[in-house]
């Protein structure tokens, strides 16, 4: 068996009705994985949105995913950020933690180490905003588990190639 690889793929699409359903339907219909998927309009003038999808599969499956995405009529361009040279990848999370006393102090201290910001605070809770690689977010969230973790909201990864060249 070929090894399973994790790839981050950027897809530029026309921001029209149903385009996200087309992309998601393609993944579910053909049995591909979606580890995360984010989408937002990036060019309001020409109504173009960018979808960043993190997926996994054998190299043959990854090639298929790209070819299948490219086949969708409203897709402008796709770019495999894992294959196409160096890229930066970030994810943002909002993490709610409840606690008092030492645990509360400890949560704040760890947040400081991870450069997470408290963006909401009550007498017995924080909401931290943290961004970084998916692994960093995982690590932070794991540490919070023993300190009163209540709720997590994550964006999924967004990514862009390093260097001066555009997609």
């Amino acid at each position: 068996m070929e090894p399973i690889e994790r790839h981050t793929i950027a897809v530029l699409v026309d921001n029209e009705a149903g385009v996200l359903a087309r992309v998601i339907g393609l993944f579910s219909g053909r049995g591909y994985n979606i580890e995360s998927l984010t989408v937002a309009e990036v060019d309001p003038d020409s109504a173009v949105s960018r979808i960043t999808v993190v997926t996994s599969g054998t190299p043959m499956i990854i090639e298929q995913i790209k070819a299948q995405l490219d086949r969708l009529v409203p897709v402008h361009r796709i770019s495999d950020l894992t294959d196409g040279g160096a890229s930066v990848e970030r994810e943002l999370a909002l993490v709610k933690v409840r606690g008092s006393g030492n645990k509360r102090v400890e949560a704040l201290r760890i947040a400081d180490i991870f450069r997470a910001r408290a963006i909401d605070s009550t007498n017995n809770s924080f909401v931290f905003e943290i961004s970084g690689s998916t692994e960093k977010l995982d690590a932070f969230i794991n540490l919070m588990r023993t300190l009163g973790l209540v709720e997590i909201s994550r964006t999924g990864a967004v990514a862009i190639a390093r260097g001066a060249k555009g997609i």
Partner: peptide, 11 residues
């Protein structure tokens, strides 16, 4: 003519 047909089932 369809790039997704290539290397789909058989390399």
């Amino acid at each position: 003519i369809d790039p997704s047909s290539i290397n789909k089932n058989v390399a």
